[in-house]
Design a protein around this nucleic acid. Structure first.
Lengths: 114, 114
DNA sequence: GCTATATACCTTGACATTCTATATACAAAG
DNA sequence: CTTTGTATATAGAATGTCAAGGTATATAGC
């Protein structure tokens, strides 16, 4: 039915936004995005974990391990930093600018409802 | 003042949209986009020409040379094909879906006016 | 016992996209 | 004579994303 949607370089903003509400672990983030987007966006592990490490290296998020009951795999939770929150605001503004510009380019005299 | 904006994988839709009005040559396309976006998006040659060749290979556009007065560099004009026009419609719909999804992710209970 | 599914982390290698830099060539402006 | 503008093009590097695989445990079905 619905085809997969390309996130087009917005992974950082997506992850930071999801973490801005509360701390989450990797696997939880991917499930959250999957349901939040009505199964349209599925972050694969090969994209998600490198992205989380990248964001951590930039000090936009911080990871901390939380042990689970014996036998269950431990979880690495991530919290957003103050720097990360500033980044959200910045990237959000850029995103809004960009969709306005795109609207102008692709609509050009048409009415598409954007 | 304004920083450069990343076009994040939307080059194809941008070029096709610009060509949907009338035929243009490469250099003209980049200038058109530059002014249309109030100097926010500048397609570099290293991005533009490979993209045009890519689109041509996919038969979404067709190129044809137009000779200029002697001494002036010849121009390679591009026209959009029927297949290209279908692609615009498809990518436009995908884009609209995507910005709706992004809006849901990054707004989440806020009012940002998107 | 075997298989599949779910949880949870991770890395490697390939591919596509985009940029920087460079190359060619001529005209006009300073 | 150097720069800017017009106009094409490619090579190399960086980045981002994905497909595929790997590790490990628990549970459910056959």
């Amino acid at each position: 039915m619905f085809s997969h949607i390309d996130i087009k370089g917005n992974m950082n903003l997506i992850i930071l936004s999801v973490l801005s509400k509360n701390d989450k672990y990797g696997y939880e983030i991917s499930k959250e995005i999957y349901t939040l987007t009505e199964q349209r966006i599925r972050l694969k592990e090969g994209s998600l974990y490198p992205a989380l490490h990248r964001l951590e290296k930039q000090a936009l998020i911080e990871g901390y391990w939380v042990e689970q009951e014996p036998g269950k795999p431990n979880r690495k939770y991530y919290r957003i930093t103050e720097k990360g929150r500033s980044m959200i605001e910045l990237e959000k503004q850029e995103w809004i600018s960009f969709i306005k510009i795109m609207g102008r380019i692709i609509c050009e005299g048409e009415s598409t409802g954007i």
